[in-house]
Each structure stands twice: as C-alpha cells, then as structure tokens.
Design a protein around this nucleic acid. Sequence first.
DNA 1: AGTACTATACTGACCGGTCGGTATGTTAAA
DNA 2: TTTAACATACCGACCGGTCAGTATAGTACT
Lengths: 196, 196
Amino acid sequence: MGGFKASTGDKKRRIIIAAMRCFQRKGYVNTTVDDIASEYGRSKGSIYWHYPSKKAILIDLFSYWMDETFDGINAEIAPLKSSRDKLIRMGEFFIESLIRDYELYSSMMVFWGTAFEDASMRRMVVDLYRRYDEVVTSLLVQGQADREFSVPDIPAFSTMLIAMIEGLIVRQVMSRSLDLERIRREIPSLVKRFLP
Amino acid sequence: MGGFKASTGDKKRRIIIAAMRCFQRKGYVNTTVDDIASEYGRSKGSIYWHYPSKKAILIDLFSYWMDETFDGINAEIAPLKSSRDKLIRMGEFFIESLIRDYELYSSMMVFWGTAFEDASMRRMVVDLYRRYDEVVTSLLVQGQADREFSVPDIPAFSTMLIAMIEGLIVRQVMSRSLDLERIRREIPSLVKRFLP
DNA sequence: AGTACTATACTGACCGGTCGGTATGTTAAA
DNA sequence: TTTAACATACCGACCGGTCAGTATAGTACT
C-alpha cells in the first residue's frame, strides 16, 4: 500500500488518483467529472477519452485498491508460521494501514456509500467479502488442523472477525476519533482470547 | 422495533414510512421526492407542506429509528442482572432484529451511505456511535467492578465489540448471504471468550 | 529534408434530461 | 370564512455525457 504512484505517463492511473482525491474530499455524488478533470489537470473531454463513464472510474479505482490490499496482506502474513500469528498480523496490518493511509481508506469508503445505492457496486463489495472470507477461513481451518486453537464454528467466527475489522474502518472514517494506536496494541490480546 | 405503525393520522409519521420504503428499494440519491409522495399516496406539494426538504425527511427518519433502537435495547437488557449476560443479550438482540426487521435495517443503511457524502449526516451517525459507546462501556465497567470478568482496555474493547455488530449489519445488508441464525447461536460463546 | 498521413490526446462549448424546490390554485372540514 | 392539507404546473440549477474541431508526435514515403 502507500502506492498509487503516478510516474510512467499512465494516464488512466493518473485519472484514478485524481478521482480518489476528489472522492475523498467530496464523496462520489458530490464530485463532478469536471472536478476530476481539474484535479487531473486536463479538461472533461479528456477524461471521457480514457473512460466511458464516471462510474467506470470508480469501478477501476475499486479494483485497483482491492488488488493492492490483497497483495499487501499476503506479503505480510507469508513469512509467518503460526495461523494465530497470521491473523494477529492481519489485524495489525489493517489498523496500521488505516493509520498510515487514512486518506486512501477514506476515499475507499465511498464504495460502501455507492454500494447502498447501486447494485453493480454492491456486487463488487460482496466479491471483496468473499475474498476476505477465503483468507480468514483458510487460516482458521489451518490453525485448527495444527491444533493451535479450536473454534466452535469456523464460518461464523470468520464472519465476525472480518466484521470487526470492517466496522473499525467504517467508524474511523466516519468519526476520525478512534485511538487507533491503542486498538492496535490490543489486537494480539484480543485474538488470543478469540482463539485460545 | 417492528414498530413504525402508521395509525393515528400522524402525517409526518406516514411520510417517514413511505420514505423508508423508497430508500430501502432505491437508496437515498435515487429516490425522488415524487417517489416518496407517490408511496405516501399524495402529491409532492403535500410532502413539502410537512417537510422543508428531502434531507429533513431523512434526518427525521434517522432520529426516530435511533430512539426506537435504544428503547428496544434498554427494554431487553433491563431485567438481566449480569453485565456479561446483558452484553450477550444485546448482541443477540441486534442479530434477531436484523433477521426480523431486515427491510428496516436495510433502509437504515442509507444513512451510512449519505454520511460518506454529507457532513451533517455524518455528525448524526457519530452521535449514534457515542450512544452505543456509552451503553457498552458502562456495561464493561460494571462487569469489571463486579469481578465478573476483566478486560485489559475498556475503551478499545468497547469499540471493537460495537464495530463487530456494525460490521455484521453492513455486510448482511450488502450481501444478504449470512447465516444469521448460526451467528446468533455463537454469540454467547463469543462473548464468553471475549470476557472470561 | 520535406510532405503527407495517422493515431493518440485533449479542448470546451453545448445539449438534454432530471429533480429539488416553489408558486398558485383547490378542497373540505370546523 | 378561515385554514390545514393537498394538487398541479412550473422553474431553473446542475451535471453527465457528446462532439466537432485542434494539437502533437510518430511514421512512411518521396
């Protein structure tokens, strides 16, 4: 993460970044294509040369972010052996990302906003859930197989763990008032209670 | 909950219900005032006789729901003695409400959507968080004082418990695919792990 | 080197529909 | 006959999307 570097004359990438900044400041509905164009430093027509619609920009931004997120997670947990440690690291990673790239996460939350209004965006968010679920569930299965811990109901616990992370992100973006450092510190003790 | 009865010729109440149904189907942005009027069974001019703006309807709906929710929670947990039981009951109550009044929760989620776009709506959501926090924190403090359980960091744990509930609601409204009965069954064991 | 041609990238005026909100008139009950 | 409650017709700002034209840079032929 922390990525989104606009270097190589990749126009679409640059437009995505411009859009991200606008969405972050004004939300999706309140951002006009002219806003994006002016942040991009070009005119509106130019935007439409690269993208067929405003929504296509949002979708592209979402896909990009989703890929980056999963690459980040995998890189973080790959070197660890214990499944419990991987889950702890995953939780910490999200909170650290939220602290570091707050603006990014903030702009990503517009997806949730649009998903409540738009079926095709909702499908993308649901796909994201599915991918989170795959990761967490496989870690719970692995840890149980290795006799690291035992959980009564893996799908239910997986769902609840993911829900907690998501809830924290949503809340922080809304209120900007959480003591994230403090929460990060409590993650190991929390996961250990969860998975004794 | 399960309320929102339109009986007493209270026009504003009826308008709120009509708006709720529309928001639930189409989201806030995609619902026009004409939609609300037609669901209300009257014309647009009539809506504007009762409410000064579309947003005022949303805000009124939110306040109404917020009050109902906290009344519901208090009624549920009042008869219980143990703080841990109260927290379990609270969790179960939310899941049960989500199963029973799915449409209601679904329409409430438009607040989150608008809150990402609109500062005044965000303030209302933040106020809701504050009220949740008050309830959960006081239960954790009480339980700790009664030596029922011990938590290392009450604010952090309170935040995470609330985040989990919120995350579950958001996800269910998005995906409609959770096995909520299963999750409800796991709440006691989860809270007991959380608060040993 | 000069010319012709082409693909890419961009401009900005413009259109057309939508929708929140308003102005004005109507009805029915007290 | 007053007024709460509603209907109808309308306004106008806003904005996503279009399009005819322009600029630039690479290529190919002479």
